[in-house]
Design a protein around this nucleic acid. Structure first.
Length: 736
RNA sequence: GCCGUCGUGGCGGAAUUGGUAUACGCGCAGCGUUCAGAACGCUGUGGCCGCAGGCCUUGCCGGUUCGAGUCCGGCCGACGGCACCA
């Protein structure tokens, strides 16, 4: 997945075609993966920057377009006046351009948008189908941010103008003592009275220059400005002043809020600051208080609300809503997806702009629309993509009327290619279809579970709300087209933890704490690195790197070699091992098979490796020379240390068939069954020692054994046993 | 501020349904091996008192229970996400 900003910036800096530098990087990564012995099916390798791949990314885009899910809108972007280019949020640090340090401005430009909000309900509603970490589901739920409320019109005094307001607390409407608009609200121009115009313009200008962080950062002090205009509260017909404040966001709700200071903490703060009236309309007991100490945000009983007095908040909300004949609406925090980038290194958007016919999609037969070669990747200075400068590419005939037209020069964001790549793995070289439906069903549909898809998806939490939401959106769209069988793309999700620097901080070049895998492999071997990474701790946890820990693993692997070398010694030792000792080591072997098998199935690699260490230590201690013990060890260790175990398999065990094709061992229950139980003795819940007894003792037998035990006897001698708790073969607790 | 996750030795971390806390590994100490070192092997290694033996210990306080790292309540702290959402 190689489209995107880092590859483009590298291209600009080193004056190299990103197609070439990307190719080099891919080769390097591939070499590293092979060096580590990762078992990928390289026949299915795909590359999102390959025209054969992005042909289908563009095809999906055209389908989205045909289904009305693509539209154009003016959207604010970060603009660096010195570099004369649009910046990604990532390139803006503390409101300054990350490259040149100039102050970043906000500019509106035409952008292509994807209507992800049309899928908001389904993206939310289908979350329970997924076997995902609860944390990620909650993050997506909050990100989508569904809320039910009411939309109301407030008439502007002495005009025909109306201001639409969204509220979740229509029950508090009698307490609305002012109205606040976002500084970007389009109505401001029309309603601001002459004497306030200057102040309003200054305020709007200041808000535009503020970064989102600045604007939303200081929650203690609110800024605002009066427009000079008044609105009419539709409930009590009272005149209320219209203000502007930058804590109101144009992107949420309607960009206008009714201020109810008595029952909302932000409104309370704003009203206090600008000395606006505060009217209590909800009370705990049906009585209004003489003076409110702070906002009452809880539900209660209505007061000062005309005919609705005495009603509870819930009932009042419905009745007031009916009385004002207002609309019930559902709002989402989720915003539509800005799907255009003013960059070179991305999939060209396959649309044509004709002065006569308007926007025209390019014919499907013309796909892929290839990214042309350019000489310079630098921004154009006009805010357009470098593609805009290639006249021969830009100027085309309109596919509808044949007249002169121009290509769209923006490219897609780097998320596009990663939204559907898992489908292409199934059928990577299909020239006619995105994926063959039979193949899709074979891999992703499971009759037992209604919703399946990718069986296991491992990725970092950083994808919680972007990639994982975008991909779900596209998948649902493809489901609607009948191209995929399941509603959801990724059935099970695991978030692997990040490997941190030795001081628990993120690895980064600037901190100089990056560990280069090539060097570790060179020094300690790929098997040691693999095992160490799995042994460090649970897959899901972030863990600090420790090179000394790798050394510990090389010691373990050396011990495995020792076990192998022992099998070449004469077999006398074996006869010296007693029957009981042999039974013990057999039992440990079977327990190890069981534990390693179960741990791998539960992704608990750290404890599986620990079990293998225990088994290896035992084989070494007993100097076991029987090859069957070694064979089990290398098979169990094979997924962790494929290179070394294969070598032992062939050189010490003289096998011809590859170890990885050898069936996985099964444990023998009979060998695990214990004949002697070690029973823990507790006195008043406190551990006092163990007794050994036959398996299956009943309570009396266990008690007798305990009473006869020297170590236990002294604790219970002359004591009155009040209660006995006995768990067979495990524990005996005496309450005295 | 809201939401979420998590607090176990010097460190990374173990611990089925509540049932012997500290497995495994690192580090450290002593001994062996060596002319010496590295490497390796053996032994020890939660804390306190101590001659045998005992007491305490899973962030802190309390609760439930015969029994709590695990369950419940309240604090404290760390990390992550969202952030004036009307």
């Amino acid at each position: 997945d190689a489209f995107g900003l880092p590859a483009e910036n590298y291209a600009i800096k080193h004056k190299v075609n990103p197609a070439i530098s990307t190719k080099k990087n891919i080769a390097h990564f591939k070499k590293q993966m092979q060096m580590m012995g990762l078992s990928y099916d390289w026949a299915r390798e795909i590359n999102t920057t390959d025209p054969n791949y992005y042909k289908w990314t563009q095809w999906i885009f055209l389908e989205l377009y045909k289904h009305g899910l693509v539209y154009e809108a003016d959207m604010p972007v970060n603009w660096c006046p010195k570099c004369k280019t649009v910046l990604a949020d990532e390139e803006v640090k503390e409101n300054k351009c990350d490259r040149c340090g100039a102050l970043v401005e906000h500019r509106n430009i035409r952008q292509w948008m994807l209507r992800i909000t049309a899928y908001a309900d389904r993206l939310l509603g289908d979350l329970p189908l997924l076997n995902w970490p609860e944390k990620i589901k909650i993050m997506q739920t909050n990100w989508i941010g569904r809320s039910e409320g009411t939309e109301l019109d407030f008439r502007v005094e002495n005009t025909d103008l109306k201001i639409k307001v969204f509220t979740t607390r229509v029950d508090t409407i009698y307490g609305a003592t002012y109205l606040v608009l976002s500084p970007e609200h389009p109505i401001i121009n029309q309603i601001t009275s002459a004497e306030y115009k200057r102040e309003v313009l200054i305020y709007q200008d200041r808000a535009r220059k503020k970064s989102d962080i600045e604007r939303q950062g200081n929650t203690a002090v609110k800024t605002g400005v009066f427009t000079g205009a008044y609105a009419i509260n539709p409930a009590n017909k009272k005149l209320i002043p219209i203000w502007i404040a930058d804590y109101i966001l144009m992107s949420y709700g309607t960009g206008a809020v009714m201020g109810v200071p008595a029952h909302d903490s932000r409104d309370w703060q704003f009203a206090k600051q600008f000395e606006l009236p505060i009217v209590q309309v909800i009370s705990r007991n049906g009585q209004s208080e003489s003076k409110l100490a702070g906002p009452l945000t809880a539900s209660g009983v209505l007061v000062n609300s005309g005919i609705f007095n005495g009603l509870s908040t819930n009932i009042a909300a419905t009745k007031i809503s009916t009385y004002l004949s207002s609309k019930k609406v559902v709002r989402y925090k989720l915003r539509d997806w800005i799907f255009a980038r003013q960059r070179y290194w991305g999939e060209p958007i396959p649309l044509i702009r004709c002065p006569i016919c308007g926007i025209q999609p390019i014919p499907v037969n013309d796909l892929p629309l290839k990214l042309p070669k350019v000489k310079h990747y630098e921004p154009t200075g006009t805010g357009e993509s470098p593609l805009a400068k290639i006249d021969s590419w830009v100027n085309v005939k309109c596919p509808k009327c044949g007249g002169p037209a121009k290509r769209e020069t923006n490219t897609m964001p780097q998320w596009a290619g990663s939204c559907w790549y898992y489908l292409r793995y199934l059928d990577p070289s299909n020239k006619k279809q995105l994926v063959n439906p039979k193949i899709e069903k074979y891999w992703l549909a499971n009759k037992k579970t209604e919703n399946f898809g990718v069986h296991l998806y491992i990725g970092g939490v950083e994808h919680a709300v972007l990639h994982l939401l975008y991909a779900r959106f596209w998948h649902k769209f493809l489901f609607d087209l009948g191209l995929v069988t399941n509603k959801e793309p990724f059935y099970k999700l695991i978030n692997q933890g990040m490997i941190l620097g030795s001081g628990h901080e993120k690895m980064s070049k600037s901190k100089g704490n990056v560990v280069n895998p090539d060097e570790i492999v060179k020094k300690y071997g790929a098997d040691a690195l693999r095992i160490y990474e799995m042994f460090m701790g649970p897959l899901q946890d972030s863990k600090p790197w420790s090179t000394e820990g790798v050394i510990g693993i090389t010691r373990f692997l050396d011990k495995v070699w020792q076990v192998a070398l022992n099998t070449e010694k004469p077999k006398i030792k074996e006869t010296l091992i007693g029957k009981e000792e042999k039974a013990q080591i057999d039992k440990l072997r079977e327990e190890t098979i069981k534990k390693v098998t179960n741990d791998i199935e539960g992704y608990r690699f750290n404890t599986a490796i620990s079990a293998l260490m225990i088994y290896t230590n035992a084989l070494l201690e007993k100097e076991i020379r029987d090859k069957s013990y070694l064979a089990i060890l290398v098979k169990l260790l094979n997924p962790f240390a494929p290179h070394m175990t294969e070598e032992i398999w062939q050189n010490f065990l003289k096998k011809k068939k590859p170890l990885e094709l050898e069936p996985w061992p099964k444990w023998d229950y009979k060998k695990i069954i214990q004949k002697i139980a070690i029973i823990a003795i507790q006195i008043n819940g406190k551990f006092r020692g163990n007794i050994e007894g036959k398996i299956g003792l009943n309570q009396e037998e266990a008690l007798t054994l305990a009473q006869n035990s020297e170590a236990i006897h002294k604790y219970i001698e002359g004591q009155n046993i009040k209660r006995i708790i006995y768990i067979q073969d495990k524990l005996l607790n005496l309450v005295i």
